[in-house]
Each structure stands twice: as structure tokens, then as C-alpha cells.
Deep mutational scan, measured.
Amino acid sequence: QEVDTIELTRQVKEKLAKNGICQRIFGEKVLGLSQGSVSDMLSRPKPWSKLTQKGREPFIRMQLWLNG
């Protein structure tokens, strides 16, 4: 299904801030990505339709983390 990447990243940033989790830790533990990649993804999320399967994976992980 289509994911609203802008809304998703907004919710993730909100939860990170609320729980005092830094992007570096979130990136390493949840997404398996560097802090730079995570920062870029959270500040400039690409539309779901423009992402490859590999590009979608971190957003799917974010969704699971939010719902977890």
C-alpha cells in the first residue's frame, strides 16, 4: 500500500523528540543507516511512488517502529 512519507517522517520526528532519542541511535538500531542518511530522509522524504523497493524499506521500518 501507498505510504504518506511526509506524514510518516513527521510522526517519527515527533516520537524521537518526545522520547529523547537521537537520530544517530534511531538510524543505527532501527533503520540500519548512518545518521546522515536518516537526517536526509527525515528532512526531505521522497514520495512513495518515486522510491525503489530498497528505498521504501526504511519507511516500512519506520512504520513498524511507530506501530510497535
Rank of each mutant, 00 (worst) to 15 (best):
Q1P: 04
D4R: 03
D4C: 05
D4I: 01
T5D: 02
T5E: 06
I6T: 12
I6F: 11
I6Y: 09
I6S: 05
E7S: 15
E7I: 01
L8N: 13
L8Q: 12
L8E: 13
L8M: 14
T9Q: 05
T9K: 09
T9S: 08
T9Y: 01
Q11P: 10
Q11A: 09
Q11I: 04
V12W: 05
V12G: 13
K13D: 04
K13E: 06
K13M: 04
K13C: 02
E14H: 02
E14Q: 08
K15W: 05
K15A: 08
L16T: 14
L16H: 13
A17E: 11
A17C: 08
K18W: 04
K18Q: 08
K18R: 08
K18D: 02
N19P: 14
G20M: 05
G20T: 10
G20F: 05
G20L: 04
G20E: 03
G20S: 09
I21L: 11
I21Q: 07
I21R: 02
I21A: 02
C22A: 11
C22D: 12
C22P: 11
C22M: 11
Q23G: 04
Q23L: 12
Q23W: 12
Q23T: 10
Q23V: 03
I25E: 15
I25S: 12
F26L: 03
F26K: 02
F26E: 00
G27N: 06
G27E: 09
E28H: 06
K29F: 01
K29Y: 02
K29R: 11
V30I: 13
V30R: 01
V30G: 15
L31S: 06
G32T: 04
G32F: 03
G32M: 05
G32Y: 02
G32I: 01
G32H: 10
L33V: 14
L33Y: 05
L33H: 07
S34H: 08
S34R: 14
Q35A: 14
Q35I: 09
Q35H: 12
Q35L: 13
Q35S: 14
G36F: 12
G36I: 11
G36P: 11
G36C: 12
S37R: 10
S37W: 09
S37Q: 15
V38E: 04
V38I: 12
S39D: 12
S39A: 13
D40M: 11
D40A: 07
D40E: 14
M41H: 04
M41T: 10
M41N: 04
M41K: 10
M41V: 13
M41L: 14
L42N: 02
L42V: 04
S43M: 15
S43Y: 07
S43T: 13
R44K: 15
R44H: 09
R44D: 15
R44A: 13
P45W: 09
P45C: 09
P45L: 06
P45A: 05
P45D: 02
P45I: 08
P45V: 08
K46Y: 11
K46Q: 12
K46G: 03
S49C: 05
K50I: 15
K50E: 14
L51Q: 00
L51H: 00
L51E: 00
T52Y: 08
T52P: 03
T52M: 07
Q53H: 07
Q53C: 13
Q53I: 09
Q53S: 12
K54A: 13
K54M: 04
K54R: 11
K54V: 03
K54F: 06
K54L: 07
G55C: 07
G55M: 12
G55V: 13
R56Q: 04
E57P: 01
P58H: 08
P58K: 12
F59D: 00
I60E: 08
I60Y: 13
I60V: 14
R61E: 02
R61L: 07
M62P: 00
M62L: 05
M62A: 08
M62I: 03
Q63V: 04
Q63S: 06
L64D: 14
L64E: 15
W65P: 00
W65K: 01
W65I: 00
W65S: 00
W65F: 03
L66G: 00
L66D: 00
N67L: 09
G68Y: 02
G68A: 11
G68S: 05
